[in-house]
């Protein structure tokens, strides 16, 4: 499933990132968002998702969440 389908309050393991844009994938990598890493869905604000990767909090939109394949 994609992160966009995940439920708030859960944490997931990133399975893969659908590569739409090399730069974006690389950027996510430097934040620590890549296959095997943990990602938590914290809340939803203004239609966007608040996630935590490592010890950072980010706001991402649904388009981006749909690119991130996760498993429980």
């Amino acid at each position: 499933m994609t992160l966009a389908q995940g439920s708030i309050g859960n944490s997931y393991i990133v399975e893969s990132i659908s590569n739409q844009d090399d730069e974006l994938t690389d950027f996510l990598f430097t934040l620590g968002c890549y296959a095997g890493e943990r990602i938590s869905l914290i809340s939803q604000i203004s239609g966007n998702l608040v996630i935590s990767i490592r010890d950072g909090r980010y706001n991402i939109d649904k388009n981006l969440a749909e690119l991130i394949q996760v498993i429980e």
Binding site: R57, Y58, D61, N63
Partner: peptide, 11 residues
């Protein structure tokens, strides 16, 4: 064009 938004949320 599909755009992607990611922004760090400072405390």
């Amino acid at each position: 064009r599909k755009s992607f938004f990611i922004m760090e949320l400072p405390e």
